[in-house]
Simulated scan of single mutants.
Amino acid sequence: MMTEAKTKFLNRQFNALKNKSKQIYDKRLKTPQKRKMTFELILEKASVLLKYFLLYGLSFVILYPLIQQFSIALRAPEDINNPLVLWIPENFSLKNFEISGIVLDYWNALWNSIKMSTIVTILQILCTALAGYAFARLKFKGQGILFIIVMATVIVAPATIELPLKLTLMDFLGTGKSLLGSPTIMYIFAATGMGIKAGVFIFLFRQFFRGIPEEIEEAAYLDGANPLQVFTRVMLPNARGAMVLTGILTFVWQWNDSYFTANFVSKVNSDFSTLTTKMMSIRNAIQGAIQQAGIWQLLDQDVTQNPLFTSMILNTSAMLSMIPLIIFYLLVQKVLFTEGIERSGLVG
């Protein structure tokens, strides 16, 4: 009896579900118009799900190394060989930050990085904007060839021009004075269109100024303005978006630069180093740093011979170098960065 009652109950449930499915079909899929609307709704929901799936997937790929890096930085040095420690450190410690700060000479290198990146950014904005305006509006012989040469600087490897630049700087303008080892070199590069990726920014400003109506310039000329006045009073204020984008990228690229700063400044003048150039020589400075931090012996061996410990200090040093940039991004990304991209003509 129980089995028969149960079978009848299941049959009623199945029939009810069947009737409900038929009602849904009649309501949504019976006519071609309803089928089309239903399929469009399904595609819309599927696209939203796919978008969020990709968004969360890419976020994980980007954030995973940062989370792992932060976890390693907070790990006590004696736990570096502990196979049980994967994500959450068994012993939390700030010793890695202390050692990294000593190795990097952090506050001095931080000040040098901020000063150099800021000055280079200002000079590069002014230089590339002026060059971009000249290529966009002024007409002169050889303009096309010169612009091709400027664009070629983007794809030419820096090592190709390193030797000629060093020979020139060793006898600057025939004065017999060498500028190698001075941060002034980076400022000269930025002010003369030889800064990092300057060709990209010249092209950016050229395209931006070409998009501004010529009637605005003509009105300024009728009022008696010369080309320089038109540039500074009319064109430059309208190029705020391109200036913001150029400033952000130049600051970040100069901050992370290890090639030009190391070869032309730090390798010649050991008293001037940025955070990035300090990281290049960090392996040779670990021994003195751990002696100063008071943890010379770890795991019954010289820690400088432990590659995992060296990698942990490198990891923490990289994190200390990134913190100012992260703060910089947080300050400008909403107010300036989005507007800079939108107004620079790089979006569709």
Rank of each mutant, 00 (worst) to 15 (best):
G224F: 10
V230A: 07
N315Y: 01
N11Q: 14
N315K: 08
K34M: 11
N108F: 09
T168M: 15
T276G: 04
I326K: 05
R283D: 13
I67Q: 06
N82Q: 00
G288F: 02
E214D: 13
Q33C: 07
I24D: 11
G193M: 06
Y106E: 10
I149H: 11
L66M: 11
N226D: 12
L228F: 15
Q301G: 05
V332A: 09
K95L: 08
E218K: 12
I80Y: 07
K6V: 13
A318T: 00
L63H: 02
V200P: 02
V154Q: 10
G174R: 02
L330T: 00
E162P: 02
E339G: 09
Q254N: 15
N226K: 09
L275T: 10
F209S: 01
R206L: 13
V103P: 07
L325T: 05
V48E: 10
A16V: 00
S273R: 15
I248Y: 02
K267R: 14
K267V: 11
A318D: 01
V120F: 01
G211A: 07
E342I: 13
Q143W: 05
F209P: 05
F140Y: 12
M319P: 01
P77N: 02
N269V: 07
G195E: 00
I282N: 02
Q297Y: 14
A219W: 04
M312I: 03
I185C: 07
A136E: 05
T277V: 12
W296F: 14
T38V: 00
D26S: 10
L222R: 10
P158H: 01
T304A: 11
F70C: 11
K166L: 04
N11G: 12
V48M: 11
S117F: 02
A289D: 07
A134T: 14
I313L: 04
I155S: 03
L163C: 08
F39P: 03
M1N: 09
G294V: 09
N19A: 14
L249H: 06
I286N: 00
Y52D: 04
M37Q: 15
R137T: 08
